[in-house]
């Protein structure tokens, strides 16, 4: 097994911890901002509300866009699977 000193292990753990913070802070901030009452995004968020989620649920262009995304993704998936399989058979 790879033997490392305590200090080296501590440094490795610190780097891993830093990476996880770096990777998840932006997503966390983004998700919390979707519950922000105010229209301008910012930090810390002023007050909690599900206003924008309700807005997104009822707003027709967003619903259309969601449907289009699903259709495009399905189409791309089907074509890519077929082409990928054919390519592998060659």
């Amino acid at each position: 097994m790879l033997r490392l000193s305590r200090l080296t292990k501590a440094i490795l753990i610190a780097i891993v911890g830093f990476l996880l913070i770096f990777m998840y802070t932006p997503l966390f901030v983004l998700i919390l901002n979707s519950f922000n009452e105010s229209q301008i995004s910012g930090w810390p968020i002023e007050s909690f509300s599900t206003k924008w989620w309700v807005f997104a649920k009822d707003y027709q262009p967003i619903r259309d866009a969601l449907l289009n995304s699903v259709l495009v993704a399905t189409g791309a998936m089907i074509i890519a699977s077929i082409l990928g399989t054919l390519f592998a058979l060659l």
Binding site: P26, L27, S41, G42
Partner: peptide, 22 residues
């Protein structure tokens, strides 16, 4: 995070590093 949208991640970084950001 690979399954989070590409644009979503860019906007998330924008939110973190904006003037009044996180």
């Amino acid at each position: 995070p690979l399954w989070a949208g590409y644009l979503v991640k860019i906007i998330a970084m924008r939110l973190v590093f904006t003037e009044e950001g996180f």
